[in-house]
């Protein structure tokens, strides 16, 4: 296959870009994680693996476990909400679909940090939700929404939901509606059609969506900080603290490498499954 000059140029540019801004910084992080912290300098060139062994201290393991639980629950909630949404989207009239997809994407035009602050305006004690419920007489005292675990999940799900909807939609749209009809004709009920036809056929979309939500959820420290009141440390804020507050760059780098490794494993698992499914 001969590539046009433009195609070769684009690929070279992309390759160069990734090496310069993703691969080289990652190598620098790896190197930093293998040296020691100095009392008066960020890194002393004394090789050590203690940054990694320290990560297995119960305190730090707890941070990893908490983050995995947070990301896992967020992913599950996103899946439960996004699946019906994507299914309706995929079965709605063609003319509507483009509009509905644009509506899903529009929030991306605003920074997610700004949208998190907007959520605070909605959720706080004197916020819009409480004001509306109070004036409707549905509640007598304001609900405590801010700085709770629920607020964290509302924020996480709200921010990450589009990442689940889009791959699900892509997978569900491809399912031939005649398959569902045939199942229905043969007497399959709703659950049976869902679990035996729709879900197996959209599995690649479900997995892709889960990855796209789970991986960023691990690093999104500003949502638990802003909406949850910074009461729990998750990996993202832990790494930031090591670099900025505690100035322990090697330890922060080691935590960052462990996170990268976990993510790579998940991606590898996904790639392996896809290849097997393709073969």
């Amino acid at each position: 296959m001969r590539l046009s000059r433009f195609a070769r140029f684009s690929i070279a540019l992309l390759f160069f870009w990734i090496v310069l801004f993703a691969f080289l910084p990652q190598i620098m992080v790896l190197i930093a994680s293998l040296f020691s912290k100095g009392a008066t300098s960020f890194i002393v060139f004394e090789p050590t693996v203690s940054n990694y062994t320290r990560l297995f201290d119960p305190i730090y393991l707890q941070i990893f476990v908490d983050s995995l639980v947070l990301a896992g629950v967020t992913t599950l909630l996103c899946l439960l909400i996004a699946f019906p949404f994507a299914a309706i989207l995929a079965r709605s009239p063609k003319a509507w679909r483009a509009l509905l997809l644009v509506l899903v994407i529009i929030p991306f035009w605003t920074s997610s940090l700004v949208r998190t602050y907007a959520l605070i305006a909605l959720l706080k004690t004197k916020g819009l939700i409480n004001a509306a419920l109070l004036s409707l007489g549905l509640i007598e005292a304001p609900l405590e929404l801010m700085y709770t675990q629920s607020a964290v999940f509302i924020g996480m799900v709200y921010t990450l939901l589009p990442f689940m909807i889009l791959p699900l939609y892509a997978a569900l749209e491809k399912i031939d509606p005649r398959l569902i009809e045939a199942a229905s004709d043969l007497g399959a009920g709703f659950w049976s059609r869902l679990t035996r036809i729709t879900i197996p056929l959209s599995l690649s979309g479900i997995i892709a969506g889960c990855m796209l939500v789970f991986l960023p959820a691990l690093g999104m420290f500003y949502i638990p900080d802003l909406l949850g009141g910074a009461k729990n440390l998750i990996i993202g804020s832990f790494i930031r603290n090591q670099f900025l507050t505690f100035r322990d760059w090697p330890f922060g780098a080691a935590a960052s490498m462990l996170l990268t490794f976990m993510m790579l494993m998940l991606v590898a698992l996904y790639a392996y499954r896809e290849r097997k499914a393709g073969a």
């Binding site: 009392a39 305190i59 730090y60 729990n232 440390l233 832990f238």
Partner: peptide, 19 residues
């Protein structure tokens, strides 16, 4: 507080992880 800051950090992390 010099190097004692690492003791402060350790307990701060413990406090925030609920250990």
């Amino acid at each position: 507080v010099g190097e004692a800051i690492t003791i402060y950090e350790k307990y701060w992390e413990k406090l925030k992880t609920g250990n």
